[in-house]
Amino acid sequence: MVRLSDLPNYEREHLLSKNLPPLGPAVWTKAKADLSELRIALITTAGLHYRDAQVFAFTDSTFRPIDGEEDPNNLVMSHSSVNFDKTGFSEDVNLVFPLQRFKELAAKGTIGSLASIHYSFMGAGLLPESYEAGAAQVAGLLKQDEVDAVFLTPV
């Protein structure tokens, strides 16, 4: 997230207007082991997908699976918002989706392992409740992949 003071007025007011009630009781699960034993998945709301996958619609609560074995340099971004910088992502995919960094951490043993599949949503234009079905489906898929923790990157 950015400092509110670094935003132009219209964007600051836009973000401050998003004052929604809590989604429900806060969730908390303690980490079950040391970091070096945890299996981690990446999830982004940046609207990323591989070039040949279906692009995100203007408002879209679906998600795209991202195979961790594919080259992340083939990821494109069809996020509907124009209110954030894309030049950095154009230079380096890891700025938004740090798959290469996590592979390095797994190779060094800092984390236990990486999930086989990661997930991408497009976070714009809909209220959080719209994502409930997709999020529940992803939660099931993550359990199936024996994932312990998720690293979420919004844009």
Binding site: D6, N83, F84, G88, F89, V96, V155
Partner: peptide, 8 residues
């Protein structure tokens, strides 16, 4: 404290 679009 990074610009929007640059979470890392």
């Amino acid at each position: 404290p990074f610009p929007l679009g640059r979470p890392l």
